[in-house]
């Protein structure tokens, strides 16, 4: 494998509260190769967005990185000063948020927003920036791009707005893009357009992507590898075919089983009993054990080990055997 673009090592994010110190991200490690799309799935509150925000240095106080390291292209970035991080953000790491309306400035024409980003990060003249802004809009498939440079965000539809956000995230040519639920607010047909666009652009430029989503269908379609998060920890990490078709962690297995599959009939859905524990009241040992069919005394005391699975990892004492689920 070539050197990873991003390397997250034993990342811990803590939120001190009056009662206790919460750990929304607990000992998470992963690497991303150049041009790779890493899907991060999990239920709400699993820590998927928090991990992304930690990487890009956008944790809201009092949340902070309490341990671990983040390396971007061989440079450590988790201990940078705010002004240094500002240069990395946008230049090296682009960001795409869920709601395109809140990530665009409603008072600025989108041409100006694109230009501002390009001028901030690339050593080019204003005229050149203008040209690149136009190019960026054309690349994301906005019709009549030259005229649209002068439009305000509210004049675009939801799908078009998300295209503008993608153009913004990519215009400084970052090596990594963090896309946090980029299609959740969009309709099915527009979602397909945006996913295809994201895949095409990243392939053409060799940009790596962290694709945070709760939609397993989107993961199957777009990701090369998947990280499954549960209660702040990495439950399983591996190539997408393996994680979806032969999951090792019982949580992944339950999650995949509870999807109403397009191919299955009307039989009852498999369900995982209960719901994810709150951060303030995490059980001892493996956080999944109260909902796990295989849990025993070991699981109640010690968190799951980091097990090597073929091409990936699963944090479980009793991983689902490949034969049964295959």
């Amino acid at each position: 494998m070539t050197d990873p673009v991003l390397s997250v090592k034993n990342l811990v994010v803590e939120i001190p509260t009056r009662r206790a110190v919460l750990r929304p991200v607990d000992d998470v490690s992963y690497d991303i190769a150049p041009g790779e799309i890493l899907g991060v799935v999990g239920e709400s509150g699993a820590g998927k967005s928090m991990t992304g925000n930690a990487v890009i240095g956008l944790l809201d106080r009092p949340a902070h990185i309490a341990g671990g390291e983040i390396w971007l292209k061989g440079k450590r970035i988790d201990n940078l000063r705010a002004d240094q991080m500002r240069k990395v953000r946008g230049k090296e790491i682009g960001m795409i948020f869920q709601d395109p309306l809140t990530s665009l400035n409603p008072l600025l024409r989108i041409g100006d927003q694109l230009e501002e980003t390009i001028l901030e990060h690339l050593p080019v003249s204003r005229a050149e920036a203008r040209k690149r802004a136009l190019q960026a809009l054309e690349e994301v498939g906005i019709p009549a791009a030259a005229e649209r440079l002068g439009s305000y965000p509210h004049e675009f539809s939801g799908g078009m707005r998300q295209r503008v956000v993608i153009a913004l995230a990519l215009c400084a040519e970052p090596s990594l893009v963090i896309a946090d639920e980029p299609t959740t607010a969009l309709d099915v047909s527009v979602q397909a357009q945006i996913i295809a666009l994201l895949k095409r652009l990243c392939r053409e430029r060799g940009t790596s992507v962290i694709l945070v989503t709760h939609d397993m269908g989107v993961i199957a379609e777009a990701a090369d590898r998947v990280a499954v998060m549960y209660a702040g920890r990495l439950a399983e990490l591996g190539p997408v075919e393996q994680v979806l078709n032969a999951p090792r962690h019982p949580y992944t297995d339950g999650l995949v089983g509870s999807m109403p599959m397009a191919s299955a009939g009307k039989e009852r859905l498999r369900q995982i009993p209960g719901s994810m524990p709150r951060l303030g009241s995490l059980p001892d040992g493996c956080a999944f054990h109260p909902r796990c069919p295989k849990a025993d005394a070991e699981c109640r005391q010690n968190p799951g080990p980091t097990l090597d699975a073929t091409g990936g990892r699963a944090a479980c004492w009793f991983p689902v055997s490949q034969e049964v689920s295959a």
Binding site: S189, A192, A220, L244, N245, A262
Partner: peptide, 13 residues
């Protein structure tokens, strides 16, 4: 519609 059983599918959007 994205489908879980078609990994790495390339769709004409």
């Amino acid at each position: 519609a994205p489908r879980m059983d078609q990994i790495g599918r390339e769709v004409e959007p």
